[in-house]
Simulated scan of single mutants.
Amino acid sequence: MAEFDFSQALADANAKYESISKALDMDRMLNDIKELEQEASAPGLWDDPENAQKVTSKLSAVQAQVRRLRSAQQRIEDVDTLIELGREENDADSLNEAEQELVSIQQDLDDMEIQTLLDGEYDERAAVVTIRSGAGGIDAADFAQMLLRMYLRWAERNGFKTKMMDTSYAEEAGIKSATFQVDAEYAYGRLSVEGGTHRLVRISPFDNQGRRQTSFAAVEVIPLVEDTDHIDIPDSDIRVDTFQASGPGGQGVNTTYSAVRITHLPTGLVVSMQDERSQIQNRAAAMSVLQSRLLVLKHAEEAQKKKELAGDIKASWGDQMRSYVLHPYQMVKDLRTGYETSQTQAVFDGDIDAFIEAGIRWRHEERRKAESQDEA
């Protein structure tokens, strides 16, 4: 076994720390903390609970980021001292401890580096995720529900708040579609790499002959709109329908017409909401999601025009971005990044951070290549 290169490991850790510190801009973060602390201490802050929650959450997130960065710097200095002592005293235990600490530091720096790659226009936003069953009948509906559980478990593991906005249940099992919101800093930046077509291969639990079945589900991720986005939707451009909310198997969950379906006539986009208590709340939630989808559509059209002008109309994302194979072997593989694991149950239990991080790095590299081509 090759001897551990402490000098190289220290140099790598210091270089990565400097790169991250520069990208995150410590001075800017400290200035943000001062401004947010002033806002948080304002006498009338909680007169607007929604804004107060945003301010306090943002403050907490920036403070945590600064603490983590400072902790990494201190750990690098401490392990450097430990290495010197270990070498001077020829202490194998100290050197072993230093090696383990350097590996741990590198992992933490890799995690922090992901934050520097989330530099898209809406990456900081909360996310709205919609999952729809595709080809595959009952299995596809069941797969869509498996994906819903996976993402909700992922959010729970990370301490992110979620809110169900709409669920349309399939008749026999699973769901036709579901929409939920993830309230966390950079939720959109992280989850946006999950958008695309997901494929499941397994022995169908709904086939009495035990045959293998391939089914598909689509995941859509959009940023939550804010007041500053200015997406105006004239009343003449929408049709609003109300209906009774329903539960699994079509069972009515209330007797009032509180559920709302909004159709955007120019684009054909349809948004349904039924998980709020009142029709007014469901309409507001549906309009918010519709605005988000129109915002994404607007930017997609602008990006497409730029690609056409550049003579490149290739799609950045393939129709199928990830496969979940449960038979004849166990494997989850991302077809864009090549990242894979045989721990399929862990993935369906929400252990998808490695897939998300690989996706973020892949997307960053694709953007870098595109920018290089544009400059050429």
Rank of each mutant, 00 (worst) to 15 (best):
D110H: 07
Q107C: 08
E124C: 12
M146Q: 12
V201M: 03
Y169T: 09
V128L: 13
T130F: 04
L200M: 09
M150G: 05
R149P: 11
Q181R: 13
S104H: 01
A170T: 00
L102M: 12
T130A: 01
E171P: 06
A98M: 00
A98Q: 01
V182P: 07
G159C: 11
F206I: 00
N158K: 12
I203R: 05
Q181A: 14
G174Y: 04
V193F: 02
G137S: 08
Q115G: 06
Q100Y: 15
I114P: 03
S192Q: 15
G136L: 01
V201H: 03
S94P: 05
A187S: 03
T130L: 07
G196A: 09
D123I: 05
S177H: 03
A170K: 00
G189Q: 00
M112N: 07
R202G: 03
G134D: 00
V103D: 13
Q145I: 05
T162F: 12
D183M: 15
A184T: 01
G137M: 04
T116F: 03
E113P: 10
I131S: 12
D142E: 08
D119G: 08
A98H: 03
L191A: 09
G174N: 08
R202L: 04
V201D: 02
L191I: 02
L109N: 04
E156M: 13
L147V: 02
D119W: 02
Q181H: 14
P205H: 02
Q106F: 11
S192A: 09
V182D: 00
D123H: 06
E194V: 03
G195Y: 05
N208G: 10
E99V: 02
D166S: 12
F180D: 02
I175L: 14
G189P: 06
E101I: 01
G136E: 07
E124Q: 12
L200E: 01
L118T: 03
R199G: 08
G159R: 13
E99L: 09
W154P: 09
I105P: 08
A184Q: 00
A140I: 11
D166N: 15
F206C: 03
D111L: 13
G120E: 04
R125Y: 06
Y122T: 00
K163L: 14
S192T: 08
D108L: 10
E171Y: 00
L152S: 11
A135Y: 03
E172D: 01
D166Y: 08
F180P: 04
Q181C: 07
Q115W: 04
R190L: 15
L117C: 08
V193H: 08
